[in-house]
């Protein structure tokens, strides 16, 4: 049954491509000619994803945990962080970071061209932004662990730190995974915003191609964006499947969701 559905979906997709070709919208020679440029952009996007997701995760775990501690200073810090970065559109944050860091670099390190650091600044801004979302995901995960288990761990003689790492976090992580996977999918697509400050990632490469293609044939523009969309789709699918693998590994027998 599942194979039949997948085959049908593939057939429909194939039919759409054939139809588009028939309408003159899919010039295979042109489609092949842009692959190299787009792959250059994909590499940069991959780097951004590979940096933003782990850094965002560390930021998320730190601030998410901070908001669940008994110390009001840590809680206030966590809340301030989350509210600040969550209220800012990622595009604004990226542009603003680029301006501020560019200014600092020019003033103190005499770097003239801020574009060289565009990718770095963009990744930092996105990691801080995503971290604020992940902090809330992690906080929800931590709150899902019954306090009785923390009490039991302390009653055994485990220290607070041991309780955190052996009892609370593993369970919070398990509960957080589906929401984290969701956030990772968002992060992958948000990396396209780095183009706003000149980071040469996938969608910026696309824009460059579009600028030259638009004078030749409007159909080329369509082809470019279809290929970009496909690459994002593949990237997101890979990350989603990876998260599902981790979910299965952390699954606890007897705690599976009820099948409806």
């Amino acid at each position: 049954m599942r194979r039949a559905v997948a085959a049908a979906a593939a057939a429909v997709a194939f039919a759409v491509v054939v139809w588009l070709g028939y309408r003159g919208l899919y010039d295979v020679t042109y489609a092949q000619s842009i692959v190299d440029d787009l792959l250059d952009g994909l590499v940069v996007t991959l780097v951004a994803v590979a940096v933003v997701i782990p850094v965002g995760l560390v930021v998320g775990f730190s601030f998410g945990w901070a908001r669940t501690t008994r110390s009001w200073v840590l809680r206030a810090t966590g809340t301030t962080y989350v509210e600040f970065f969550r209220s800012m559109p990622p595009l604004v944050l990226i542009v603003f970071s680029s301006l501020v860091i560019g200014l600092l670099l020019r003033a103190y390190l005499y770097v003239e061209n801020p574009f060289v650091i565009a990718l770095g600044v963009g990744m930092l801004a996105l990691a801080l932004h995503s971290g604020s979302y992940q902090a809330e995901i992690v906080r929800a995960g931590i709150l899902s662990v019954p306090t009785g288990q923390v009490e039991a761990a302390e009653a055994l003689g485990l220290t607070r730190v041991q309780t955190m790492f052996r009892v609370t976090l593993p369970q919070a992580f398990r509960v957080s995974l589906p929401a984290l996977g969701n956030e990772f999918a968002v992060v992958i697509k948000d990396t396209s915003l780095i183009s706003a400050i000149g980071g040469l990632e996938l969608s910026f490469q696309g824009t460059i191609l579009v600028n030259s293609a638009i004078r030749l044939n409007l159909n080329y523009v369509f082809i470019i964006w279809v290929e970009i969309a496909l690459l994002y789709f593949v990237l997101t699918t890979i990350v989603t499947l990876a998260v599902r693998k981790v979910e299965n590994r952390y699954g606890v027998p007897g705690l599976e969701a009820a099948a409806l």
């Binding site: 009785g148 009490e151 039991a152 009892v167 606890v252």
Partner: peptide
């Protein structure tokens, strides 16, 4: 100590 609600580590 043994608790009313067992409090086993479910993972």
């Amino acid at each position: 100590m043994v608790f009313q609600s067992f409090n086993l580590f479910t993972h």
